[in-house]
Computed example of a mutant assay.
Amino acid sequence: MIRNTYIHLPKVGLKKEFIIREQGINDWDDFLERDIKGISKKTKAFYDRKILEAKKELYEGNSAYFTDKVPTTETWRLYEFFKDEIVFLDIETSSSTSMESYLTVIGLYDGIDTKTMVKGINLNPAALKNELKKYKLIVTFNGSSFDLPYLNKKFPGLIPDIPHIDVRHLCNKAGLKGGLKEIEKQIGITRNNVIVERMYGGDPIKLWRMFRATGDKYYLDLLVEYNEEDVINLKKIAEYAIKKIKNKSYQSEKSPSKALTPESTSS
């Protein structure tokens, strides 16, 4: 998807991108080979240089190049290219109401294996920083509002300068509303661990407090399993939403009269 994206070019937004595609410019190679209506020769030459630059950075695996060039609402376009180098990330904290709380659990999922770090057991900021350096994209749910600002405040310099996909905003774009658990139900994802929901109200903070109060590893195991399901399901939801957005985009391009409505251009 990133290779038929033009919004990384200066002064090209969703509407102008649609106009480019409407001329049969389906990818960067098409763009380089053809003249484009509405773009002067001088601007086209400048854009050609920018596309060649983007191709070079993309094929060298430099996802950071796109961090400040692709709008945060459109970083999902990088997903397919970097799908084998993505980390799905979710954190748990000792309180949901204060930045004075502390990190209790952080879960990472690379699409195959999960890694979990727990305060007082194996949570090591230096090791975590090295782990995050391995990836090209970070995917969270509501991470632009909570997880990443929280981690940046608690551990400055921890988060690498790579694009971030917030699945909450991705779901809004795809017409899926609500929190992570509500969206899981909407698309038919069933959790293996129902004990947390039924007995502890789906509250990871309560599980951490019970573990700290009793020292009983049972509560910690429940918390870790709960967090693991969060990060694993993030991948399922992200891919469901991206497929839906791509289908919606394809239908819009087939129906130009719908494509430039305020609804389609605002997303």
Rank of each mutant, 00 (worst) to 15 (best):
P256M: 14
R198Q: 10
L108I: 06
N192F: 13
S94G: 04
S257H: 14
V70N: 00
L132R: 00
T214S: 13
T190C: 11
V118R: 02
P160F: 01
L223D: 05
P125Y: 07
I242A: 13
V12R: 01
D113R: 06
Y150F: 15
L128I: 05
Y219E: 11
N233Y: 12
D166E: 00
D30K: 00
G188M: 12
G179Q: 08
E131I: 03
Y200H: 13
S267F: 09
M210Q: 10
A126E: 10
E225A: 15
N247Q: 15
D161E: 15
A238D: 11
I20F: 14
T261H: 11
Y59T: 03
N122L: 04
A45V: 06
K248I: 12
G38P: 07
G61P: 01
T265E: 12
E17K: 04
K181M: 06
H169C: 01
L128C: 01
L58R: 00
W76M: 09
D166C: 01
R168C: 03
E197K: 10
K15S: 11
L260Q: 15
N193C: 14
K44A: 08
H164Y: 08
P204Y: 13
T97V: 02
L176M: 10
G175M: 14
L158A: 01
T116C: 08
L180H: 06
G107P: 05
G201E: 06
K56M: 01
I51K: 00
Y6F: 13
T5H: 05
E229V: 10
H8A: 15
K248T: 07
K44R: 12
E33W: 03
Y240M: 14
P163Y: 00
A241R: 09
Q186K: 15
I2R: 03
G201W: 09
P163A: 03
T140P: 06
K56T: 01
P262L: 13
K50R: 09
I205M: 06
D230P: 04
D68I: 12
M99N: 08
I36V: 09
M117A: 13
I112Q: 06
N124V: 11
A54I: 00
E182P: 09
I112C: 07
P10T: 06
K41V: 14
Y47G: 04
L32Q: 00
P10E: 11
E197H: 13
G24H: 02
M210S: 15
N192V: 08
I39S: 03
K115N: 10
S249P: 07
I165Y: 00
K56N: 02
L151E: 05
D216K: 04
K244A: 13
N172V: 10
L170Q: 02
D29A: 05
E74S: 02
D147R: 09
C171T: 07
E53F: 02
Y79W: 15
I112D: 04
I242R: 08
A126S: 11
M210K: 13
A127R: 04
L132C: 07
Y250M: 15
K50I: 03
K254V: 08
Y219N: 05
R34G: 02
K181I: 11
K243W: 10
G61M: 09
I183Y: 06
V224E: 11
A127G: 07
S145D: 07
Y226R: 12
K177R: 14
K206P: 08
